[in-house]
C-alpha cells in the first residue's frame, strides 16, 4: 500500500485474504479495516473462519493470498514472534497458560518477555517484576489467586489470566478468541466489564470473536459477521444485529442453542484451533 493512500485512522488492514484447508475455504477474500481505538466484534457460526483470521493476523497461519498491513507496514506471513514485537497481542480460545507455573509466574514470564528474557542470573521474580505482575493481576482481579498453579484455575480465571499475559506485552492491538466462552453465565458480564475497562485505560484496539450477542451489543463499536470465509456484514451493532440476513445466518443458530454456539466444540489442547 502506498503512503499516499494511507489512512491514519486505520491500524490493521486486511486485503483479499484467502486460505483453504483441503476443500474448505476458511478465508475466501477477507477485506477488513480495523480502526484505531475501536472494539471490533467478530461473530458467525462455528467453522466460518473467525479463528483462522486471528491465526493469519498473528502469524500462526500463512495466508495463501492477500495481504495484511499493520500501522502501514506489511506483516503478511511474518513469524508470530516478529508480529508480537510490532505490538499485536493475542489471547486464545483455549487459554494457553504455563500449567506448571503459578499465576504470578505466568504473568512474570510475560512481563519478562517484554523486558528481555536473556538474563541467566537475575531471578525471574525480582522485586520490580513482582510489583508489575501484581499490579497487572490486580487490574484483572486475579491477585487473590496469584499463588495458585495455572492448571488449578476455573475457566473464567484462566481466560482472564490468558488475556492478562497478552496485555503484559503492552500491545496496541489485541486479538481475543472467544474471551467469554466457558465463563459461567453469572461471571460473564463482570469479566467483560473488567476487560473493557483495562483495555480502554491502556488505549488498546481490540478485535474479539464472540458468540454472546449481549456481550457484542454492549461492548463492541462495530461488528463483523463471518460466514463461510467471507464477511457478510459490517457495521455498528445496532444495525448489524437487526439485519434480517444476519439474523437468519448467524443469530438464528445462536438463539436456538446458545450452548452449542459458545465454542465448546472438540479441540486439542496446546495448538490454537485452525
Amino acid at each position: 500500500m502506498s503512503a499516499a493512500q494511507r489512512d491514519d485512522s486505520v491500524l490493521l488492514e486486511a486485503r483479499g485474504l484467502r486460505l483453504a484447508f483441503g476443500g474448505v475455504k476458511a478465508a475466501d477474500g477477507i477485506d477488513l479495516s480495523v480502526r484505531r481505538g475501536e472494539f471490533l466484534a467478530i461473530i458467525g457460526p462455528n467453522g466460518a473462519g473467525k479463528t483462522t483470521f486471528i491465526n493469519m493476523t498473528t502469524g500462526y497461519l500463512r495466508p495463501q493470498g492477500g495481504s495484511i498491513h499493520y500501522d502501514g507496514e506489511e506483516i503478511t506471513g511474518l513469524a508470530p514472534r516478529a508480529i508480537v514485537k510490532r505490538g499485536i497481542g493475542r489471547s486464545f480460545q483455549l487459554p494457553q497458560l504455563f500449567t506448571e507455573h503459578t499465576v504470578l509466574q505466568n504473568a512474570a514470564l510475560a512481563i519478562a518477555a517484554r523486558r528481555g528474557v536473556w538474563h541467566p542470573f537475575a531471578p525471574l521474580l525480582s522485586m520490580s517484576v513482582i510489583d508489575e505482575a501484581r499490579e497487572l493481576l490486580n487490574r484483572f482481579g486475579l491477585d487473590g489467586i496469584r499463588d495458585s498453579r495455572a492448571d488449578s484455575l476455573n475457566e473464567g480465571a484462566r481466560k482472564l489470566a490468558d488475556i492478562a499475559m497478552a496485555t503484559a506485552l503492552r500491545p496496541r492491538l489485541l486479538l481475543m478468541d472467544e474471551p467469554t466462552s466457558g465463563v459461567a453465565a453469572s461471571e460473564k458480564m463482570a469479566v467483560v466489564e473488567t476487560l473493557a475497562r483495562v483495555l480502554r485505560e491502556a488505549e488498546v484496539t481490540a478485535v474479539f470473536v464472540e458468540h454472546d450477542m449481549d456481550v457484542v451489543e454492549r461492548f463492541s463499536d462495530r461488528v463483523a459477521v463471518w460466514s463461510q470465509g467471507r464477511i457478510l456484514a459490517l457495521g455498528p451493532p445496532g444495525e448489524v444485529l437487526r439485519d434480517p440476513d444476519v439474523l437468519r445466518e448467524v443469530i438464528g443458530v445462536a438463539a436456538v442453542d446458545p450452548s452449542a454456539a459458545s465454542g465448546a466444540g472438540p479441540s486439542r489442547e496446546g495448538a490454537p484451533d485452525a
Binding site: 513469524a79 493475542r90 506448571e100 509466574q105 514470564l109 519478562a112 528474557v117 538474563h119 531471578p123 495448538a271
Partner: peptide, 27 residues
C-alpha cells in the same frame, strides 16, 4: 540461579506451552 531466571523458567514453559512462549515474543 539459571533455573529461577527468566530463561530457566522459560525452559519449563517449553515443556508446557511452547506456542505461548512464541506468542510472547520469546524464541
Amino acid at each position: 540461579q539459571y533455573l529461577i531466571s527468566p530463561m530457566g523458567e522459560a525452559l519449563a514453559a517449553i515443556k508446557t506451552r511452547e506456542t505461548r512462549l512464541e506468542f510472547l515474543g520469546v524464541s
